[in-house]
Design a protein around this nucleic acid. Sequence first.
DNA 1: CGGCGCCCATGTAGTAAAAG
DNA 2: CTTTTACTACATGGGCGCCG
Length: 216
Amino acid sequence: MAELPGPYNCPKDLEMVLPKSQDDWSKEDIVQLLEYMEKSIPSNERRTFKTTQSMVDWEKVAFKDFSGEKCKLKWLEISYNLRKFCTLKEIIQEAKENVNNPSKSRNHKKHPDLPKRPLTAYLCFFKEMRPQYIQKHPKMSNQELTKVLSEEYKKLPEQLKLKYSQDFQKEKQEFQEKMVLFREQHPELVQNSRKPDVPKGSRSKCQRSFRKMCKK
DNA sequence: CGGCGCCCATGTAGTAAAAG
DNA sequence: CTTTTACTACATGGGCGCCG
């Protein structure tokens, strides 16, 4: 704990190592440096920037009179300044958003193979009838159309509703079969189709009632 | 462990807001 | 400025937390 690791984590050292504007980098040179760096990393790289950064072969980045070592130092200077722009306050704000809205966080991506939940009876009806109602009421907004269609759905004869819900039941079975397959193929990913990366119990009762209050 | 109740996911497309 | 994303209306099955 007593000794700090290399210059990456030690801004004060970095400032001493990199006196300001002592070098001869033009704007164009920096653009070129960044382009060479970009080219040097694999396109499918998924590791953290620190990991990748430590693996960069600076001799390959080197160009003109700028040696690999010079390039590396310049990059450290640039990236250090960049990190100053991202304040702790901003990071905390982003963390807050992620806590409250895990599914909407920037890096939240659904697995591409994750089966889609089947449409409920109402949504099937909605999907099927919407085009006709668009023609009937060309000037209606989507919100208004939704209202009309929900009215229509309520008026629908029981027989038709039954047909829609039977379709739903059938699709539900298929969905469950697909989910079984999905879980077999991706055992490391969750038991739950809904929120793959939300740990159980992450939503507290307080959070719920708070949201409820906000809604009203 | 059963049952209640909250909240999410699901379809659409225009629009508003945010990001790039 | 352009592109992307979230929200809006609606019904409803189902996952899950919580309480007794």
